[in-house]
């Protein structure tokens, strides 16, 4: 993209080329910084949630949700920094597989823990059994 802008600037006027600003670079750097910071926030929030929440299912909630969103945001930040199409496609492939496999693994862990008899901390409420869920 920057090559197209540079070629257009060279072809139109030489005077404008002296004050040429790489706007695509500026925009991609801003996008990288913003989505990387958001992704790092979600990653660290998930880690602190896994460390400090009281119950297995709440820890699962923290890790499963924030890891998926944080991973996608960090991969988006890296996609902004790519300079060829091959890297973009590879990172999109990684993002797709993380988006498919991470909630599936979280669901599998939750279901296995529930079937093994691990009860959530609910206070006065009662968790439904698997038969009630099925019907």
């Amino acid at each position: 993209m920057s090559l197209i802008f540079a070629a257009a600037a060279d072809a139109s006027e030489a005077a404008k080329a002296a004050s040429y600003v790489d706007w695509w670079g500026v925009i991609s750097n801003i996008g990288t910084v913003m989505s990387m910071l958001a992704g790092l926030f979600f990653i660290m929030a998930g880690t602190i949630g896994v460390l400090r929440l009281p119950d297995f299912y709440t820890r699962l909630h923290a890790a499963g949700m924030t890891d998926t969103l944080g991973a996608e945001l960090i991969l988006l930040a890296l996609i902004f920094q790519c300079d060829n199409l091959q890297m973009v496609l590879k990172l999109l492939l990684v993002a797709f597989f993380l988006l498919v496999t991470s909630p599936t693994a979280t669901h599998a862990v939750a279901h296995a823990a529930y079937r093994a008899g691990l009860r959530p901390l609910l206070g006065e409420y009662r968790a439904p059994t698997l038969d009630e869920d099925a019907s």
């Binding site: 992704g39 990653i43 998930g46 880690t47 896994v50 297995f56 820890r59 699962l60 890790a63 890891d67 944080g70 991973a71 960090i74 991969l75 990684v94 993380l98 991470s102 693994a105 979280t106 862990v109």
Partner: peptide, 13 residues
């Protein structure tokens, strides 16, 4: 297991 799974995701990143 949850920690291992999350650790693996962070390793990918």
């Amino acid at each position: 297991l949850l920690a291992v799974n999350s650790f693996g995701t962070k390793t990918v990143l």
